[in-house]
Amino acid sequence: MKAEDIKNLNIAIIGAGYGGAAAAKALSLLGADVTVYEQASQMREVGAGIGLRPATMHRFRQWGIFDTIAKVSSPSDYFEILTATGDPIMKDTWPEFGEQTQTHLIHRGDFIEALLSVLPEGMVHLGHKLETIEDKGGRSVLTFTNGKTVEADLVVGADGIKSVVREQLFSIKGPVFSGEHAYRAVISTDDAHGMVVDDNLRMYMGRGTKVYLLPLRHRNQMSFDITALCPDSTWAPTITKDDLVATVEGFDERIVNIARGLDMDTVNVRAVYDIDPVDTWHTDSVVLMGDAAHSMLHHQGQGANSAIEDAGALADALTEASTVKDALALFQASRKPVTDELQRISRQGWTEDEVNDVFPGQKPTSQKPATVNAPAQSKA
Rank of each mutant, 00 (worst) to 15 (best):
M195W: 01
R254Y: 03
I172R: 01
G160D: 04
S285P: 01
N257S: 13
A84C: 09
E45R: 12
Q362M: 12
M203F: 00
L169W: 14
S188N: 14
E96D: 05
D159M: 15
F331R: 02
N268W: 06
D265G: 11
D77N: 06
I13Q: 01
M90A: 10
A16Y: 04
V156T: 10
Y78S: 06
S366K: 12
T85K: 15
L201F: 09
D243H: 11
G349T: 04
A236E: 13
D316L: 07
L262C: 05
P95G: 02
V286C: 13
P360Y: 15
R108A: 10
M205I: 06
E80F: 04
L126W: 03
T240L: 13
L142Q: 04
T319P: 02
N146A: 03
I133V: 15
K148M: 12
D153S: 09
E354I: 04
I161S: 08
N356L: 08
W350V: 00
M43A: 12
T238I: 07
G147T: 03
V372S: 10
D357Y: 08
L29E: 08
V46T: 13
G250Q: 09
Q348P: 10
G157V: 09
D279K: 05
A48E: 08
T143G: 07
S74I: 14
V338M: 12
G51L: 05
R344I: 04
R207D: 11
V256F: 07
S73F: 09
A3K: 12
E167K: 11
D243I: 11
A380R: 14
T209Q: 07
M289H: 11
L314V: 15
I89Y: 02
P369T: 12
P75V: 11
A40K: 13
Q367L: 15
D310K: 05
M296I: 05
A315G: 08
T266Y: 00
I161H: 10
P360L: 12
M57N: 05
G301T: 01
I161E: 07
V197R: 06
F331V: 15
T35P: 00
W94D: 00
S140C: 10
H104F: 13
G122M: 07
I14D: 02
I275T: 10
L27R: 01
N268V: 15
L262D: 05
I106Q: 03
S322G: 05
H218K: 04
A185N: 05
I308V: 15
R260T: 01
K336Q: 15
T351N: 06
P369G: 14
I275C: 12
L52M: 06
K241R: 11
G15L: 10
R260W: 00
D357V: 13
